[in-house]
């Protein structure tokens, strides 16, 4: 029997299932931005499970996926050659708008978030976006974002390949239908009521809301072994926190 399932392990497995929901005809190309350990781990979980997925991880000092500099990701995405990307946000609202700029007057005089990064571009040119934000509170999931870094919807004349597929949080999974969020599942310990209480935007609630499934034993074994191995260099703090493993320990076991 495995030890208790970490909340992050459930999130990783959930994101992996969402990635696999819509398979393109060719090989799926998923890009993962900076500071995104859960999405990165979800991609590694699929790859280590034998799924023919191409992963482009931006957060690597060496051995990265591109040779034309930082702009290559955006050039690929502009052509439609990235199938799926991940975005988060300091605020996310019920129309799937994301705010990475801040609150208060522009450019964030109340609380300044880091900034929009590539979101204003990637959200429109990428066919699928999975929104991920572990903190699920009324502070983050708001009725209306203070500023729109990247819009969840666009006017019909605006060229756009897709929008949010889903929003994964530390409490639940929402699906986005292009208009509104629908509660898809709640993580263990949460209820429809607790989600309503902690969410600042209105969303659809189906008659039956399932509990987000646990990762399988096989998935847990991969996460704690091969996936963690891949993540140790790029996300040492995350690996330490979730799996209690450090890069030094890896060097020891390899020696």
């Amino acid at each position: 029997m495995s030890s208790a399932i970490a909340p992050q392990e459930r999130l990783i497995a959930s994101v992996a299932r969402l990635i696999m929901e819509k398979q393109p005809t060719g090989r799926l190309h998923v890009a993962v931005g900076m500071a995104s350990p859960v999405p990165a781990a979800a991609c590694w979980l699929l790859k280590k499970s034998g799924v023919p997925i191409r992963i482009s991880l931006l957060q690597r000092q060496t051995g990265g996926p591109f040779s034309e500099g930082g702009r290559e990701l955006f050039d690929l995405a502009g052509q439609g050659r990235i199938d799926l990307f991940f975005l988060g946000g300091g605020e996310i609202d019920g129309e799937a708008n994301i705010n990475m700029v801040g609150t208060g007057a522009w450019p964030g005089t109340e609380v300044r978030f880091p900034g929009s990064f590539g979101s204003a571009f990637m959200y429109l040119v990428t066919p699928r976006t999975i929104l991920f934000r572990e903190e699920h509170s009324r502070r983050v999931l708001v009725d209306r974002v203070a500023h729109i870094s990247a819009p969840g919807r666009s006017r019909p004349e605006v060229v756009r390949r897709g929008s949010a597929q889903a929003l994964v949080t530390g409490r639940c999974i929402f699906r986005f239908d292009g208009d509104r969020f629908h509660l898809a599942s709640v993580h263990p310990g949460e209820t429809t009521q607790s989600i309503v209480e902690n969410t600042g935007f209105a969303f659809e609630i189906p008659d039956f809301v399932p509990v987000t499934p646990d990762p399988t034993e096989a998935e847990l074994a991969l996460l704690r072994g091969a996936v963690c191995d891949e993540m140790l260099t790029t996300y040492p703090d995350f690996c330490q926190r979730v799996w209690g493993r450090s890069p030094a320990e890896r060097e020891k076991t390899q020696a």
């Binding site: 700029v101 500023h147 870094s149 006017r155």
Partner: peptide
């Protein structure tokens, strides 16, 4: 030119 960005408040500012 660049695709995307339309509808972002980054553009509005």
């Amino acid at each position: 030119p660049l695709r995307g960005v339309l509808g972002s408040d980054v553009l509005a500012h």
